[in-house]
């Protein structure tokens, strides 16, 4: 299994090459681009929402437990269950859980930290985060992929073991 990486000058060139590569039957394609190629869906917003709600609920329950059951105290004649006072902290804990879940979720879903990946060996990828728009093809027949990329005006093509 080999990986063939082609670097293109800009986004438009890469996108046309992608379309034609797909027509040519290559399917295991991954792009490496300096800025987000386009929109896409991801389960993370749902994870964040759930984490936020769980955090808020936990915060609210924790305060109710501590003021109601753990050590009920008479504070200024106020009721033991003074729920309006619990809302700010519940909201804060919910937000904390949400944001942490978002960031940690992103790292988990991308199986980061992955400091090394086989595709890193390709010199073209070193500029994938600056000004080159790269396409990587996982293929058993690397030379066909190499020719296809040259044909679609790739500036630089490299091949690395998978």
């Amino acid at each position: 299994m080999r990986i063939v990486v082609g670097a293109f000058a800009d986004k438009a060139a890469m996108q046309t090459a992608l379309a034609r590569l797909r027509e040519a039957g290559f399917n295991a394609i991954e792009t490496y681009t300096p800025s987000p190629p386009g929109e896409g869906h991801s389960p993370l917003p749902l994870v964040i929402l759930v984490a936020g709600l769980v955090g808020a609920a936990l915060g609210f329950w924790w305060q109710t437990h501590e003021t109601g059951q753990a050590y009920p105290l008479d504070i200024g004649g106020r009721a033991h269950f003074s729920w309006p006072a619990y809302v700010p902290i519940a909201f804060e804990i919910g937000v904390l859980f949400a944001i942490t879940a978002g960031v940690v979720g992103f790292f988990l879903i991308n199986r980061m930290p992955q400091l090394w990946a086989p595709v890193d060996e390709a010199p073209a990828l070193r500029r994938a985060t600056s000004d080159r728009w790269c396409i990587a093809i996982h293929t058993e027949a690397p030379d066909q992929a190499r020719h296809a990329l040259w044909r679609f005006a790739a500036l630089q093509v490299d091949e690395v073991p998978a």
């Binding site: 105290l73 008479d74 504070i75 200024g76 004649g77 106020r78």
Partner: peptide, 20 residues
């Protein structure tokens, strides 16, 4: 010694509170 003491509500560590 207010029964609804404003000082007790704002103490973050229950250092001042009302006894029965």
């Amino acid at each position: 010694h207010c029964e609804q003491a404003p000082c007790e509500v704002v103490c973050p560590v229950e250092a001042t509170l009302h006894d029965s």
